[in-house]
Design a protein around this nucleic acid. Structure first.
Length: 424
RNA sequence: GGAGAGUUGCCUGAGUGGUUAAAGGAGCAGUUUGCUAAACUGUCACCGGGUAACUGGUGCAAGGGUUCGAAUCCCUUACUCUCCGCCA
């Protein structure tokens, strides 16, 4: 959530940023926010002066009673009672204005960083770099949805039987490979200085609001009505919310956490030709890294996280590229976002396997996640996160790129974790 | 699920109607200091007003109510702990 004071002081900058994000009618919406804000402050002033009067009167009544001047006290009492109606009205008005203001602010996306390219769609994303060799597979090469059947390592039909489409059952070496990747990703993160946490995979409503999944995207999350709990779409939600309503001690910064969780996404209405096999699932596994830093350090941190994620792809020997998302494609919450894509040789397309973002104060403002800066002033921190990594598409790329007549070769780095060097 | 006890600042913890945002501690900042330690001073958060010095208001789990005045009294809800029950 953007800060009102920022919008008030940087109106033109805000409108320009919103426009870059392809937000509709930025002038109109910003104007509305500022109008409500002005009304809110005016109402606050009125209310405060009434309250100040009552406080003074109450004190006076106490003094008069002590002094035994009962008549005068009674007179003051009646006088104060009149002001109470006004206070009630003003309080109601103020609360309404505050709600309105919050609702308007919820609608505004984060402002993009200066380096975010102009553009409306994924076609306008900037390719920052490409790494690794793209293999030319023979015509007999199979896409991963055929390979998993050939080697009997993932069964979608069984998943349909016990849950539904998009809930795969991993079997044998398939299951073992999943576990190997999870352990590998967690070990690497730990070596890079991340503290491993194992959070709940359901969260309450406040957590959903904290990281920005609510109030907008409730349709994307599975919801357990009876207990008011949401199944997490990513570990970002529970891990970042660990720091909700926290004033962090500066010496504990930067906070670096890593967590493995299954992730649940309803993906309502997004099924089609491009989402076969492992490309899009309702349940999948992901290792997520989260950092919380001082504002002046967050972009350096983003580069560090991006480099870390790339190091994983290099160790897995997968060809990848890094995209800087354009204004129209970047997520609602992010100020700057890098997508990492691996090349899937049999599908002949790039698959997004990680998304690494700086949210600046956008989440911290909702979370009330702050620290005391050098001047001892309470200041919002910056939050960042990235997938490191999401398993299904990595698996898809591994299966497709590494297929040989002798079976699917496991990257060397994973072999100590799998205990086998090929799936055959 | 049953019974009881709780919920006060970063932490601990007093406070049963009127100078109580509240003692102590930690952390941070400042002073002193060769360094450390110690000592002393300052420091809750949020929303406002003011160029500023400064100043008004709100907040004692949340939401209502009583009262001139509520951390304190009443109602509702949430959560935590203990014991019992059930159980991986």
């Amino acid at each position: 959530m953007l800060q009102v004071t920022f919008i008030r002081e940087n109106k033109d900058l805000t409108i320009a940023g919103l426009r870059k994000k392809r937000f509709k009618n930025p002038e109109e919406v910003v104007e509305k926010v500022l109008t409500i804000d002005a009304q809110r402050r005016e109402t606050q002033v009125q209310l405060d002066s009434f309250n100040a009067k009552i406080n003074a009167n109450s004190k006076e009544v106490g003094n008069l009673m002590k002094a035994g001047k009962k008549d005068e006290a009674e007179k003051l009492k009646t006088e104060t009672a009149g002001a109470k109606t006004s206070i009630k009205d003003l309080e109601t008005k103020l609360a309404e204005l505050e709600t309105q203001l919050t609702l308007e602010l919820y609608k505004l996306p984060n402002l993009p960083h200066a380096s975010v390219p102009e553009g409306a769609t994924a076609d306008d994303n900037e390719v920052v770099l490409q790494h690794g060799e793209i293999k030319n597979l023979p015509d007999t090469a199979l896409p991963h949805w055929d390979l998993i059947k050939k080697y009997d390592i993932i069964d979608f039909e069984l998943g349909v039987k016990i849950a539904g489409a998009g809930f795969p059952v991993y079997k044998g070496k398939g299951a073992r490979l999943q576990r190997a990747m999870i352990n590998f990703f967690l070990d690497e993160a730990q070596k890079a200085g991340y503290l491993e946490v194992q959070p709940p995979i359901v969260v309450n409503e406040a957590s959903g609001y904290g990281t920005g999944q609510l109030p907008d995207k409730e349709g994307q999350m599975y919801f357990i009505q009876e207990d008011g709990l949401y199944m997490i779409p990513t570990a970002e939600v529970p891990i970042t919310n660990l720091y909700r309503d926290v004033i962090v001690n500066p010496k504990d910064l930067p906070i670096k956490n890593v967590g493995y969780t299954p992730c649940f996404r309803r993906e309502a209405g997004s099924w089609g030709a491009h989402v076969r096999g492992l490309n899009r699932l309702h349940q999948f596994d992901k290792v997520e890294i989260v950092q919380i830093t001082q504002p002046e350090k967050s972009y350096q941190t983003l580069e560090e996280m991006s480099a870390y994620i790339q190091s994983l792809l290099q160790k897995l020997e997968l060809p990848y590229r890094v995209l800087r998302l354009c204004g129209g494609d970047i997520s609602f919450n992010a100020a700057l976002c890098y997508d990492m894509e691996v090349y899937s040789a049999a599908q002949k397309r790039w698959l997004e396997v990680s998304s690494c973002s700086n949210f600046e104060t956008f989440q911290a403002n909702r979370l009330k996640l702050r620290y005391k800066d050098e001047n001892n002033k309470t200041t919002l921190l910056h939050t960042l996160n990235g997938s490191a990594l999401a398993l299904p598409r990595i698996l898809a790329a591994l299966l497709e790129n590494n297929q040989t007549p002798e079976g699917i070769m496991i990257p060397k780095i994973l072999q100590p974790y799998t205990g086998f060097d090929r799936i055959a």
